Simulated assay, not measured.
Amino acid sequence: MKARILGCSGGIGGRHLRTTSILVNHDVLIDAGTGVADLSMAELAMIDHVFLTHTHLDHIAALPLMIDTVGDMRDKPLIVHGTEAVLQILRNHIFNWAVWPDFSEIPTAEAPFLQFRPLRVGQKIRLGELTVAAVPAEHTVPAVGYHLDSGAGSLVFTGDTTVNDRFWPVVNRIGNLRHLIIECAFSNREERLARISKHMCPDMLAAELMKLERDCEIHITHLKPGQIELTMGELATCIGDFKPHMLQTNVVLEF
């Protein structure tokens, strides 16, 4: 299977900076940040499932517009998966008729453009040959990461998270792990801010990766635009043995 990175930046401001979203094959999205806006209408209409890690704007910004754009081009609802806490935040604060129409009732409650589907950490959802499972994350709002398994290989995306001892036992049980996409939002000079906002900086990430017991490719995501070179330089110093890759828009990861 192929995971195409539509966006992986911790912000905007440059020609190629898009916020978090990953397109798996052609019909599954992991998060719906600003990178989704680069897809054509035909590509948007082919997406059947969106799995959300959490509800911060950089991870959901394109979702309301996407549904509005292609809802009437589809013959079935777009399924939005998330924990019950995540879905409740969407209902209360986004699809609430004040910020955006409630597309779970449009055009009718019986045949809506959008359907919310709750999931639990550890629950496995089978979509053809792809299995998706939520994994633990630790952030300032309810959050998860995702384990994507094709059978032949696995990709794990941490989502936004900080130090999290619940995460690593799950990852270490994945025998076919190929890719680990892990966040590092801040440089070491911003460690205090990283801890307050429940993100990572290089020194924190180095300590976390000592808990990894699997060989896999490490991909760094969610870098803040103004600190990319500084943060990647610090990562080269403290986790260079892991040969980390800076994730970039339009990279395709096979698993």
Score class of each variant (00 low, 15 high):
140 T>R: 12
109 A>G: 09
84 E>R: 15
142 P>N: 09
138 E>D: 15
130 L>Y: 04
137 A>I: 13
128 G>K: 07
103 F>P: 02
135 V>D: 06
139 H>K: 06
109 A>E: 11
85 A>R: 14
92 N>Q: 12
87 L>M: 06
119 L>V: 13
103 F>C: 04
86 V>C: 15
102 D>L: 04
121 V>W: 02
120 R>T: 08
91 R>L: 07
139 H>N: 11
138 E>Q: 10
90 L>M: 10
144 V>C: 13
125 I>V: 14
97 W>K: 11
115 Q>E: 15
98 A>D: 11
110 E>K: 15
104 S>C: 09
132 V>S: 01
111 A>W: 03
87 L>E: 01
102 D>F: 10
142 P>W: 10
147 H>C: 05
95 F>P: 06
138 E>I: 04
127 L>V: 14
130 L>R: 09
100 W>K: 12
146 Y>C: 07
105 E>W: 02
107 P>H: 00
111 A>S: 07
101 P>M: 05
92 N>H: 13
84 E>K: 15
147 H>I: 03
100 W>C: 14
118 P>G: 13
105 E>T: 13
137 A>T: 13
137 A>P: 06
105 E>H: 03
142 P>G: 05
97 W>E: 14
91 R>Q: 13
98 A>P: 00
145 G>D: 00
123 Q>T: 00
115 Q>N: 12
108 T>H: 07
101 P>R: 09
91 R>S: 07
106 I>W: 08
144 V>Y: 03
94 I>F: 14
136 P>L: 04
127 L>P: 03
146 Y>K: 09
130 L>I: 13
131 T>Q: 15
125 I>Q: 05
132 V>M: 08
115 Q>P: 13
94 I>E: 05
127 L>F: 12
99 V>W: 06
115 Q>D: 05
138 E>Y: 15
85 A>Q: 14
84 E>V: 11
127 L>Q: 12
124 K>N: 09
107 P>K: 00
95 F>G: 02
126 R>N: 08
127 L>I: 15
102 D>Q: 04
141 V>R: 05
137 A>Q: 06
86 V>T: 15
141 V>M: 12
112 P>Y: 00
128 G>F: 00
88 Q>T: 06
127 L>M: 14
142 P>S: 11
116 F>G: 09
98 A>F: 11
91 R>C: 02
91 R>I: 10
125 I>F: 06
138 E>C: 14
138 E>R: 12
142 P>E: 02
124 K>P: 00
147 H>Y: 10
136 P>N: 07
119 L>R: 12
86 V>M: 10
87 L>Q: 05
105 E>G: 00
141 V>S: 01
112 P>C: 02
109 A>F: 08
85 A>L: 11
86 V>E: 07
95 F>V: 01
130 L>S: 03
